[in-house]
């Protein structure tokens, strides 16, 4: 652990906000940032780094629209303090396509029309990428259950399952 008690101590709760240096790798690029302790990963991405692909649907872990991958695990960026991620690697929806090629999950979402308004979509896609990495879902019932942390008010669930299923079958994972 590089961090120690003293070098991250900051702010006294009343005075000027003090910023804390953190190093984050975001979509493959190392970023040295100074953040306030109360800045969430989601607000950091959206408001400071102009990575607005990650969405704010509730800001309380109730909808999954902010889902990103932190060290390859899907998490809710709205309930993650940026300062706590020092040293972590973050992948957002903007980081999934490689060399201009859509990630297979992105392509499957378009093909199966697995969204309408598109607002929950980046979270759904990051969540699906996380689900595929986890390898816990085999059946459609398991896909449904393990995608239930991502609400879609447009009701695209049938198509989301179809999209995830297609990628799962295509990569030999599942069933």
């Amino acid at each position: 652990m590089q961090a120690t008690e003293t070098d991250t101590r900051s702010g006294n709760g009343t005075g000027e906000p003090s910023r804390i240096p953190v190093v984050l790798t975001i979509n493959g690029t190392e970023r040295r940032l100074e953040v306030e302790p109360w800045t969430t990963l989601l607000d950091l991405l959206r408001e400071r780094l102009d990575l607005t692909g990650s969405k704010k649907g509730c800001d309380h872990g109730q909808c999954g629209a902010c889902t990103v991958l932190v060290d390859d695990r899907r998490v809710n960026a709205c309930l993650t303090l940026a300062v706590m991620l020092d040293g972590a690697s973050v992948t957002t929806v903007e980081g999934l396509a490689q060399d201009g090629q859509l990630h297979p999950v992105q392509d499957a979402f378009v093909e199966h029309d697995a969204f309408q308004c598109g607002y929950c979509t980046p979270g759904q896609i990051c969540s699906a990428v996380g689900l595929l990495k986890e390898g816990r879902a085999q059946s459609d019932d398991e896909i449904r259950e393990l995608m239930s942390g991502n609400l879609c008010r447009c009701g695209a669930y049938v198509n989301i399952v179809a999209a995830v299923r297609q990628v799962m079958d295509g990569t030999g994972a599942g069933r």
């Binding site: 692909g53 990650s54 903007e94 992105q106 979402f109 378009v110 969204f115 598109g118 979509t121 980046p122």
Partner: peptide, 16 residues
Amino acid sequence: QRRIDGVSKVTGQARY
């Protein structure tokens, strides 16, 4: 037909 705005939505480029 695939949505013509589909790619912008799945890549996070669509701005709200």
